[in-house]
Design a protein around this nucleic acid. Structure first.
Lengths: 220, 220
DNA sequence: TAAAAATTGAAACAACTGTTTCAAACAACA
DNA sequence: TGTTGTTTGAAACAGTTGTTTCAATTTTTA
């Protein structure tokens, strides 16, 4: 308990290797996928020994999952905070809420942020059944969906609460599509700006929601 | 050229092994992914020799691609025919078109059809960058998108043609989300029927499109 | 400083990978 | 029926995989 002693030395040293491995995992897995990266590549990038992955994480798969837990937790938390913050403003519109939720996600992929890349990899991992159902990802996402659903019910009167989950899923779909296939978007629409895209997304989804609130607008 | 000779014997014999391999590929790859299936498992399931994959297809990756080409071609063709058929009816509505396009896709996943499973795997493969951009898949999809865009412009007057691609992408997103995450849908909404889901999708997307046609419905 | 614990390093392990080889079996054709 | 070309079979190849081992080192505790 000496006062001058830099007590963090031990922890920072061991945490350093773990974090270097997590950083390497983010960079390499996002680029080449789980099977496209070997433990040897990971440890080389992290400048540590081959055995470190098993020593610190207990295996390649555990490191993979830990990488998701770290990044996904941050992103969901940010999303929830965004909704809470926006909803304190009494004069807020549905469009404002949608844009606030959509913008950071779109920006993360346009600007090639780590969070965006990991989230994209997470979707791949879910589809590839590499991370199990009912895991942290599912729980976190459910929590976010509930929060978003409540906000929409609050902003748009006349929506059947029984349908709110479907609506939130559709919003998720509207976000996920450009998020996952941004390359394709930019390839087929080279002049598309991020604001143009957001304008479209907000407009399309808002109309979809509002159409739900006012049932008889046009006969199907 | 004897009249009674069954001349197809040779061809059917060799095509048989190829088809057995393609069938095994569909079953196994869809279940476990590309890296999750070894050539030995494939040839065991197809009841042929280990070398057959390389002999008939030129490698594991070529078999993988060939499997997609066979199924995806069929599905896109069906989709295009559906649009063409529906659009010959002069009294058709936007909702009818959307439902006609969406229904077979949703049914394919609900009823666990091979086509649906392969299409789902194709999305995974695209995200995993296992099949190259500008391949058959991209061309086919572009063709379908153009057809769908023209149909919508025809059915809904007042849409800016410059925005039609974005709208079609959003429709694709609305379809892809339940298509990819049907497990999650059914888990969180156990009572959801296929018709309820289709009703929602059609309603949500149609409202999104119509909102585009009538810009000033609510101040954003 | 001495003992104990945590971490690293280099090597080996055991299993599996996709592909190639080449002789044997098969088909079709003359 | 003999010849030719195609398809199969069993084995081997060359390489990579994730993980383990255990001694050497470093760090922490007493």
């Amino acid at each position: 308990m000496g006062q001058t002693k830099p007590v963090l030395n031990q922890n920072s040293q061991q945490e350093d290797t773990k974090n270097r491995l997590l950083d390497a995992a983010e960079a390499l897995f996002c680029e080449n996928g789980y099977d496209g990266v070997s433990v040897r590549e990971l440890t080389a990038a992290a400048e540590c020994n081959l055995a470190a992955v098993n020593y610190h994480f207990g295996g390649k798969d555990k490191l993979y999952a830990e990488m998701f837990r770290r990044q996904f937790g941050i992103m969901i938390q940010r999303n929830i905070e965004t909704i809470d913050r926006v909803m304190t403003d009494p004069g807020i519109s549905l469009e404002d809420l949608l844009r606030a939720v959509m913008k950071p996600v779109m920006c993360s992929v346009i600007e090639n942020e780590t969070g965006g890349k990991v989230l994209r990899l997470l979707v791949r991992a879910v589809l590839n059944q590499q991370i199990d159902r009912n895991s942290f990802a599912s729980e976190m996402k459910t929590q976010l969906f509930e929060r978003l659903g409540r906000a929409i019910l609050q902003l748009v009167p006349g929506i059947d609460p029984d349908k709110i989950l479907l609506i939130v899923f559709s919003i998720d779909g509207a976000i996920l599509h450009p998020f996952l296939f941004m390359d394709f978007y930019q390839e087929t629409m080279p002049n598309l700006s991020i604001d143009d895209l957001l304008d479209h997304m907000v407009r399309f989804v808002a109309a979809g929601i509002r159409g739900y609130a006012n049932p008889n607008q046009e006969g199907g």
